[in-house]
């Protein structure tokens, strides 16, 4: 075998700062016309995307219970069949009408974020054949966050799958599982709030 040793160090992280929108969602910062008028990841689905339409909205709360109004949030998920639109996907061909990635700012006035996407299919756990409950990977960056935070959103109606999920089951503090499960609103709409600190602090992952 050929050994490819680690010879460099990943760059240290620095906070995204209060003006992350200029680079990542410039229309939010007031740069309305740049990049053709829309940011990357602003639209996750088109009319041909396969799967059940869902929407997700929520807020990100700091340790005082105040919603943060200067962050960005990114989603990464499988398509309706449980396949990723990525060169690393070797289990099959994913839906060409679904990139699986989205990015939105938290609203500058209310702190709310909103995504329109589809419900992902189930994917295997690590290299096993065991399936995980459907989930969406989430990444959060903002002023005051020194290293972007990874979490996951699971679905409230998947009671059985959630109960058997290998990641949810390995949480030492089972009383924190609820922080990863969205709240159902009307049909196909979910609320997923993220709590950075304090009571009901969201589970964040080192992945």
């Amino acid at each position: 075998m050929t050994l490819f040793p680690k010879i460099h160090q990943e760059l240290p992280s620095q906070t995204a700062g209060p003006y992350v929108h200029i680079g990542c969602t410039p229309q939010m910062a007031g740069l309305e016309t740049i990049y053709g008028g829309s940011h990357l990841g602003s639209k996750m689905v088109n009319e041909n995307t396969l799967g059940i339409r869902i929407s997700i909205s929520g807020k990100i709360f700091d340790g005082t219970g105040t919603p943060i109004k200067d962050g960005i949030i990114e989603l990464w998920q499988a398509d309706a069949q449980g396949l990723f639109h990525s060169p690393a996907e070797n289990r099959g061909k994913s839906d060409l009408n679904f990139q699986g990635w989205g990015r939105q700012p938290t609203d500058i006035l209310t702190g709310e974020f909103h995504f329109d996407t589809i419900k992902p299919g189930r994917i295997p756990y690590l290299s096993s054949n065991k399936l995980q409950a459907p989930f969406i990977s989430i990444w959060v960056a903002a002023r005051g966050i020194n290293l972007g935070l990874h979490t996951r959103m699971y679905f409230p109606e998947e009671v059985e799958a959630n109960a058997e999920d290998p990641v949810l089951n390995r949480l030492e503090h089972q009383n924190r599982v609820h922080t990863l499960i969205a709240k159902p609103l009307e049909d196909g709409m979910y609320q997923f709030d993220i709590v950075l600190q304090g009571e009901n602090e969201t589970v964040f992952f080192d992945i």
Partner: peptide
């Protein structure tokens, strides 16, 4: 860096292995 005080999780990150959802990523 004062902004980090109320925005820093207090509990430990939960370490999970890398599966396809962590190894794969979007294409631009």
């Amino acid at each position: 860096y004062k902004s980090s005080v109320a925005r820093s999780p207090k509990l430990a990150l939960v370490s999970i292995g890398n599966g396809i959802s962590e190894i794969a990523g979007p294409v631009f």
